[in-house]
Amino acid sequence: MNMSFREKSIWISLISTLLIFGDYFLNVIALANLSEAVAKTTALELSIRAFVLIIIVEIIFQTVLALNNHKAANLGADERDKLFEYKGNNFGYTVLVIGVLLTLGRMVSLEISPEFIEQFKVLNIPFLTAHILLFSFILSEVVRFSAQLYYYRRCD
């Protein structure tokens, strides 16, 4: 497979995001079974762990990639990379906007009828609004990376 430096870099970001935040969201869903106090502490710990981990993993792998391809790393993004980045951003932004609108809809629904939450005890996860927003953001990132990779593969 003939991949450019930028494409390899996107693969690293996509895989690390899927693994780290996939694990994070699976653990967050399991919080619904815990007591409120324990769930809150665990949710914070999980968030900190996921963010620290993604930063470390990205720094290590992107540095190794840049060291092995220093010429391409210095060249930066060319016009084709920028075009695919722009197209990927469009898809990612759409997903993010949908996520934000759904979150707003949920918040307004709860303001109008607070008893609504009682019917969905299974979703009794601490910081649920923040998690839905974070999920929207991560999903938008995954869509953005995937769209860029789709164009790279299609154009190869």
């Binding site: 003939n2 991949m3 430096f5 930028r6 494409e7 391409a72 060319d78 016009e79 084709r80 190869d156």
Partner: peptide, 10 residues
């Protein structure tokens, strides 16, 4: 040209 080899190939 100042682009990547993959761009020339495409």
């Amino acid at each position: 040209v100042g682009v990547t080899r993959q761009t020339i190939m495409a």
